[in-house]
Design a protein around this nucleic acid. Structure first.
Lengths: 330, 330
DNA sequence: GTCGGCAATGACAACGTTGTCCAGCGCGGG
DNA sequence: CCCGCGCTGGACAACGTTGTCATTGCCGAC
């Protein structure tokens, strides 16, 4: 900026006025300054600006498990969209379900003075955020609640979803339904399992612990879980899968292992692209993923705008999309 | 930091020494300082630090079309991974194919003093980046080249891919192959079209302009394009689709419109999840998307490390994955 | 002719941090 | 007893920008 001032033959302050579009600069002077800026390729340093003005950095941080997972990338996009409306940019970080990594990223983002933080928690302990929150940093948790602090949270109705799934299968005559869920230390996996039991209870079915196989899952454990639940004297006739990744693993395993006619009925938690084009099309418990991201972001910006009501806890609805795989009779 | 110093009863500078782990501070003093830091929830301001040290901001910017598109989210993740190895964070921005938006985002990121920029170009004019590049900002373009400047670029072999696709279909007896591509002003769409023609030439087939329908495409235009190429006296017996989105649109349209037995052979550019589970499984021209992101990021960090050889232009290979849809005979 | 007022410009401090340099202090050797 | 050295701590400037306030010059009004 000094160089610009020298080249234009004005003071530093006048250049500052020009780049900020302040009134009270002679048009001729302004033109000279702009020419100098152009000639030197000057670009003002936003870091210094924010430091001096004590104003916001214009960024928010988003912490999630893995940007490459479609579930999270849809959220990221939705957040970006909202952020744009409020003139902010987005710093993303993938925690890979590692609480330590999440913590590092969060504190790093704080040191960069993000205006707010959206977190899909990986761990259960978030005490490290308490000083930040007290210092006025708005934090919204999404998809999963924070482990040990009370804060704004946006969830989907995990429990209600699997209750619905079991009810749906029971309506189609299934009495033995298996559940393949993610690692039980993950909040959503646990909630969905609770809903699964609850669904059994409401449908008046006899629950059998043997039909539940929790993760973490990969190709091998899924194949094992299928054998365990399907190849037994009293096999499951239907499956509920705990998230989109597991659903896909199951579909692939079933395609490799069994004759289409022998396949169990299937309801998957989370909708996914092409579910409607598979054979049979896959019945899912769907929720509006983009809406989840939007809701969390809107909540964050409401806080930034000064809303200091007690922490909200929003639960978004889910619904069954019947496509075929879940309507097969035993 | 002042408050910490006061609370610990030391000078500002001593606190600075402690947070930077510099030698020459009495252990007892250091402990007192750390306690004060903890008590006050102090977090050093990286913006101010970078300003003072004139050092890097530790961020790189990534500009792409849409983070929610799996193609780009895989790239984003790969870049994040590499960035992490080099201790950087990632600022992302979706341009939505809007050159003006891309420009705004790029300049905004420059003002934030990112250490480098990865760009999937939306527009054809990138002159606005020249001053930045001259000022030493490394910029790497990926998936598409910059319009009017020479710079590091990482591409996939678009032309070779569609040449292969046509050859593959010709080997299975097809003489009339249609191409449904994206908007022709998009570099990749155009290259793929060129490859398509080239493939015709190499296979010794007579090219027919009527079998090419370029986008942008949506549900409606795809249905129209299918009617146009398939319902005619000399219909196409096979299709090449220009990217993953178009492939999915076509699959959905074909599922709705036609009897499976009547469907044309199909080869899609870009692999996609579940392609192997469809009926029939979809033959694609695949490339390693994560490798694309990694290569671009590695190139960027090489520049940051001081490599100033002339601009590179890397082309990553593609290969046909035969799954069924492309091996159907006419 | 003087003065008030306004428009344009500039000098200076400050944002939070770190690099440079100097001061105090205790201690051992001459 | 004094000098110098090593170790610890502090004062000050600077990074690039902007807010505050002062200065300059000019015009019109009394």
């Amino acid at each position: 900026m000094n160089d610009v001032a020298r080249l234009a033959g004005v003071s530093l302050k006048t250049v500052s006025r020009v780049v900020n579009g302040e009134a009270g600069v002679h048009p001729g002077t302004a033109t000279r300054v702009l020419a100098a800026i152009d000639q030197l390729g000057f670009r003002r340093n936003l870091g210094a600006r924010n430091l001096r003005r004590g104003s916001s950095t214009g960024t928010i941080g988003v912490l999630l498990e893995d940007v490459a997972n479609p579930f999270y990338s849809i959220i990221t996009r939705a957040v970006e969209e909202v952020a744009r409306q409020y003139d902010r940019h987005v710093l993303t970080g993938s925690s890979d379900e590692d609480p330590e990594r999440e913590r590092e990223l969060a504190l790093e983002f704080c040191a960069r003075r993000v205006d707010g933080l959206l977190v899909v928690p990986a761990g259960l302990r978030h005490g490290y955020l308490v000083p930040e929150i007290h210092a006025g940093l708005p934090v919204v948790f999404l998809d999963r609640p924070a482990g040990d602090i009370v804060a704004d949270t946006v969830l989907v109705d995990n429990l209600g979803g699997t209750v619905e799934a079991v009810a749906h299968l029971a309506r189609h005559g299934h009495r033995r339904v298996a559940f393949l869920g993610d690692a039980p230390n993950i909040f959503t996996a646990n909630e969905r399992l609770r809903g699964f039991r609850e669904g059994y209870a409401r449908a008046g079915l006899r629950f059998d612990e043997e039909l539940v196989v929790m993760g973490p899952h990969d190709e091998r454990t899924i194949a094992e879980a299928l054998r365990h639940t399907m190849l037994r004297p009293d096999p499951a006739t239907a499956l509920v899968t705990g998230n989109n990744r597991i659903t896909v693993l199951v579909l692939r395993a079933l395609a490799a292992l069994t004759d289409p006619a022998d396949r169990p009925a299937l309801v998957g938690f989370d909708d996914f692209e092409l579910a409607d084009l598979l054979n049979p099309p896959v019945t899912v418990i769907a929720h509006d993923t983009a809406a989840l991201g939007r809701a969390a972001a809107e909540l964050l910006f409401a806080r930034l705008a000064g809303d200091n009501s007690p922490p909200h806890r929003v639960t978004l609805p889910v619904h069954v999309i019947a496509r075929g795989s879940g309507e097969k009779h035993p």
